[in-house]
């Protein structure tokens, strides 16, 4: 589904990613771990071109999205992203947060078919998006929060809303950038549980995380990154029980 070929990224003179190769298949749950400054977040952010790669290719469904001439917005709709800081839209209610992008895309497709769509057609799109958003909110048990603003939610609630906001676009893959690192400890569980559910439903996920237990339990593949390259790639069980490269051994001795 995603083929990363010799991906490089520099910020000025600082080369953060030094040639990364990876293939992500349908249903994979790739956990990326590594010390801070190793480039794991930058790698994740390059996958949907939040950071424009300075070299290499990212082939998503046969298209090189690292190419600047590609309309990245179309591809991003199929790649959800969940941020460390949640980044819910502060000026929108919870429901509006989830509906915004689906309604935008729906309206756009409607206008492509018919430049002057009828009011009934527009209402239908909004109604469909609303039904979908409400069912997503029910799924995470926050249907009673539909009409409140994000500032009133707890961290765990915010992150779960952020995850279903990504789900509302029916993405083929979701990228998680340290989704639990900004949460209070007692809220980490609810977010990880939701991610586990998605994993069991077969969602393809790439997760940058410090939750080693979660990576071991849920991941189908584990990548250890340091100094801008993937130092070791293995199944989680094999990696944690028997790490090969010295940097990984050192890292695990500190975090486990």
């Amino acid at each position: 589904m995603i083929d990363v070929i010799d991906l490089q990224k520099s910020f000025g003179d600082l080369q953060v990613l030094k040639g990364i190769n990876m293939t992500i298949n349908q249903g994979d749950i790739v956990c990326v771990i590594g010390p801070s400054g190793s480039g794991k977040s930058t790698f994740l952010r390059c996958l949907n071109c939040m950071e424009d790669p300075t070299g290499g290719q990212i082939i998503f469904n046969g298209v090189d999205i690292a190419d600047m001439s590609v309309d990245i917005n179309i591809h991003r709709r199929k790649m959800g992203m969940v941020f460390q800081q949640f980044n819910l839209f502060n000026n929108k209610t919870v429901l509006e947060n989830i509906m915004l992008a689906p309604v935008y895309v729906g309206m756009k497709e409607l206008k492509k078919k018919n430049p002057f769509p009828s009011r009934a057609d527009k209402k239908k799109i909004i109604a469909e998006a609303k039904v979908n958003a409400m069912s997503l909110l029910c799924r995470i048990g926050l249907e009673d929060k539909a009409n409140v603003y994000p500032s009133t939610l707890s961290g765990g609630q915010k992150q779960r809303v952020a995850i279903v906001r990504a789900l509302a676009m029916n993405p083929e893959v979701i990228l998680f950038d340290e989704p639990t690192s900004a949460l209070d400890p007692e809220m980490v569980g609810e977010v990880l549980d939701l991610m586990k559910e998605l994993a069991h439903e077969g969602m393809t996920m790439v997760i940058v995380t410090h939750e080693m237990g979660f990576a071991r339990e849920v991941g189908t593949r584990l990548c250890f990154m340091d100094e801008g390259i993937i130092m070791e790639e293995n199944t989680p069980a094999a990696f944690f029980d028997n790490p090969q490269c010295p940097r990984a051994i050192e890292f695990l001795s500190k975090v486990l």
Partner: peptide
Amino acid sequence: DGGQMEAGRAVGLP
């Protein structure tokens, strides 16, 4: 916060 723009772009809004 810059995250607001990022979140919008991440769901595919221009």
